[in-house]
């Protein structure tokens, strides 16, 4: 059970989330011993206070969920989040630049953020529901060049979330050069396990009841 819960990014990104909900999220993350929580950047300092004495990491999003903010804005948002206590940064790739085949700007967007946060792990969200197979491969290659630590499938705010087909394409492209995070509509451990078996390192999950229930079921089985 431990090894699975430590693969989970417990996520709350909806814009109307209250401070109360962030507090609950942090407590649930501690109770379930998740790897990290993932929240919007305006709540990083609150989460930092709540998680100070735990080993739960704080992950926050940058240029989220469209990825269409200026590179300078992403860099600043990332730096500020790290200052506030973020342990991991997730940025959304610039989909407009990617679709315009302006790969130089896509790369610069990623590498500028990585340079700014240096040793802090950087995850790049591809938003696979908007991309063709070839675009996924191209985007994954650019992520490697930009020194991304993880490639993440989805923001959770687009048409669809992770698919096994997409994570397999990404895995085949990146091999072991970056890790992979699957996100969007993964609600139970059975599904999570399928992704983990296919070479995914981290899973985003938003729903605690199903998670804990399945986790308990799984730990009994194990």
């Amino acid at each position: 059970m431990n090894s699975i819960s430590k693969r989970i990014d417990y996520t709350l990104l909806k814009p109307t989330s209250t401070e109360r909900e962030i507090i609950d999220l942090c407590h649930e993350a501690i109770l379930n011993d998740f790897h990290s929580i993932c929240i919007n950047s305006s709540y990083v300092s609150l989460a930092k206070q709540l998680l100070e004495r735990s080993d739960i990491k704080i992950c926050t999003v940058v240029g989220f969920p469209l990825g269409a903010t200026s590179t300078e804005a992403k860099v600043f948002e990332a730096k500020k989040a790290v200052e506030d206590g973020a342990d991991e940064i997730e940025m959304v790739i610039n989909l407009g630049f990617l679709k315009s085949k302006n790969y130089v700007s896509v790369l610069k967007d990623i590498s500028d953020v990585k340079i700014a946060i240096n040793k802090i792990p950087l995850k790049v969200i591809l938003e696979i529901s908007e991309l063709s197979k070839n675009e996924i491969i191209k985007a994954a290659e650019i992520c490697i060049d930009g020194r991304a630590d993880y490639i993440k499938t989805s923001s959770g705010f687009s048409k669809g979330g992770a698919t096994l087909t997409a994570t397999k394409i990404i895995k085949k492209t990146v091999k072991d050069r970056t890790k992979i995070q699957a996100s969007g509509a993964i609600e139970d451990i059975e599904t999570a396990l399928k992704y983990l078996d296919s070479g995914v390192h981290r899973i985003s999950m938003t729903s605690i009841p199903k998670t804990t229930k399945s986790l308990r079921k799984y730990s009994k089985k194990a």
């Binding site: 305006s42 600043f76 948002e77 989040a81």
Partner: peptide, 22 residues
């Protein structure tokens, strides 16, 4: 800070300054 409005104030300020510069 689009479209969620949930980024830090400092990030919104930085994004605004850059947009004006641009």
């Amino acid at each position: 800070g689009f479209p969620l409005g949930a980024m830090s104030t400092e990030a919104k300020v930085a994004e605004t300054k850059q947009a004006i510069l641009d």
